[in-house]
């Protein structure tokens, strides 16, 4: 059974988003990291880049797969997880914590309603 924290919102493409004040933290779910296997590279956007809801903002790579990352919200990238450059395995080890990928600032909270709840995401992945 995959760990799907109740308090987060999800996309169908397996990203999660956590609201911390005026900042949204984005990563990929535990289910996604286990499907991908050992993550060896994360291609990150430049801070300041604009992202659109469901638009792609980066790439995660395992040895033999490449997957796009999709933003849960329309916003601006305020920070990226620089630790992933040297230790991309953080996404495997702690997908909801140290393995976060980008932070967003400046978004319409209304857009959150279009995202999946933990239950809906659970259903989505057939759990």
């Amino acid at each position: 059974m995959s760990n799907i924290p109740q308090e987060l919102k999800y996309t169908k493409e397996h990203e999660w988003v956590r609201i911390e004040g005026d900042t949204a933290v984005v990563g990929i779910t535990e289910h996604a990291q286990s499907e991908l296997g050992d993550i060896v590279f994360v291609e990150l956007p430049a801070p300041g880049a604009a992202v659109a809801q469901h638009g792609d903002f980066g790439v995660v790579e395992s040895v033999k797969t490449v997957s796009n990352l999709y933003s849960p919200l329309s916003s601006t990238v305020s920070a990226v997880n620089d630790a992933l450059a040297a230790t991309p395995e953080l996404v495997n080890k702690d997908p909801y914590g140290a393995g976060w990928i980008i932070k967003l600032q400046g978004f319409d909270p209304q857009e959150l309603t279009a995202l999946l709840s933990a239950e809906q995401y659970q259903k989505e992945i057939g759990g």
Binding site: E61, K64, T65, V66
Partner: peptide
Amino acid sequence: MQTREQHIR
């Protein structure tokens, strides 16, 4: 480094 290549990307 095969993710650069055509059969994956």
